[in-house]
């Protein structure tokens, strides 16, 4: 029984620490549509970066994607980010989540 309790506590601590790590410095990549001009890019970037949890939003007009870099401890959901995109007048599609270190957007000049 004692061993079971220790395993339970250790597992809980591990999962908690993983979830904390996961909430730090994550990047969400979202496919975009209807984004056809530089003013659209500027306006969408401005609207995304207004959100308290967003550190920076990079937008690719060429690939129709946005890389949204979140602040440590960010709690904003993917749906909320997509809502901002739709509110700005554009379409949103598939999305992917990355840890900051693993995201390819970081290796390109944003």
């Amino acid at each position: 029984m004692k061993i079971l309790i220790i395993v339970f506590v250790m597992t809980t601590l591990l999962l908690f620490s993983l979830s904390v790590v996961a909430k730090h410095e994550q990047t969400v990549e979202i496919d975009l549509s209807g984004l056809t001009c530089s003013f659209c890019v500027y306006g969408l970037k401005k609207n995304l970066e207004k959100h308290d949890d967003v550190e920076k939003a990079d937008i690719s007009l060429k690939n129709n994607k946005t890389c949204i870099h979140l602040k440590p401890g960010a709690t904003v959901t993917e749906e909320e980010l997509k809502e901002i995109i739709i509110d700005a007048g554009f379409g949103s599609g598939e999305s992917q989540h990355y840890g900051r270190a693993e995201h390819p957007c970081e290796s390109t000049p944003c």
Binding site: V41, D58, S60, K62
Partner: peptide, 11 residues
């Protein structure tokens, strides 16, 4: 002729 991968250039 083509947009840059990320961000914007002059147009």
């Amino acid at each position: 002729k083509e947009y840059p991968e990320w961000g914007l250039s002059t147009l």
